[in-house]
Amino acid sequence: MTILKNHDTKGVAFVDDAKLTARHVNVFYGDKQAIFDVSLDVGANEVIALIGPSGCGKSTFLRCLNRMNDTIDRCQVQGDILLDGEPIYDGSMDVVPLRARVGMVFQKPNPFPKSIYDNVAYGPRLHGLATTRVELDAIVEYSLQRAGLWNEVKDRLDAPGTGLSGGQQQRLCIARTIAVDPEVILMDEPCSALDPIATAKIEELIDELRENYTIAIVTHSMQQAARVSQRTAYFHMGQLVEVNPTEQMFTTPEHTLTEAYITGRFG
């Protein structure tokens, strides 16, 4: 790999009030290395966009942040990732509460084949967040309202979640994630299966959610990265090439690869 000398990331990868801290992260799928020595901070209440060409490792890196890669056999993560200063790959950190604190929204809307209500209530029930039906109802309503879905579905909470449109399904998935009251929300190309109007709604939502949550979003769309994020990280072939404030990244990129990518010369 001759992209970066000593995996030296350009720009500013570290912030003062880091929510998530990744240091020297290497990820292997069996013998194949997917991530090379990536160090990156995700600041509190910011939206950070992870961009880069297909297969660059941005999704793999995202999935390291709440240990979703644990479910994949042969996937091995090295290095340190800390949530509020606590190492998450340490033996002392249980993966169940970690995922309650670091929620995830996936590329394809994946509501459970249950009612809309049960979809949102699943997480709170799992973690015992509500003791009474009234409390649970309140969590469901609040989550759906935060996801901007309440007015559309309040009269049919018993209808199956799979019966909604694609955009509504994705907002239902966001509501489901919010219902657990996480600190960080990871989004893995949440709009790639949606039409432009649904995408606009989700982007608006991401902007609102920033008040309360720290968000890391993987996206293929550079316009989306520019619209929703404060910082942008550019990945290339498993390496973190450049991290900078989004505006600076899209106007004056430091690395030639970043420039080539955002000007559309490849990717």
Binding site: M68, T71, L98, R99, A100, G103, F106, N110, T177, V180
Partner: peptide, 21 residues
């Protein structure tokens, strides 16, 4: 579908919970 299982894992369900739910 793996996506359903991932959704449950992502919410903090344990393996047994994912299997039984």
């Amino acid at each position: 579908p793996l996506s359903i299982q991932e959704a449950a894992y992502g919410l903090g369900a344990s393996k047994v919970q994912v299997v039984f739910h």
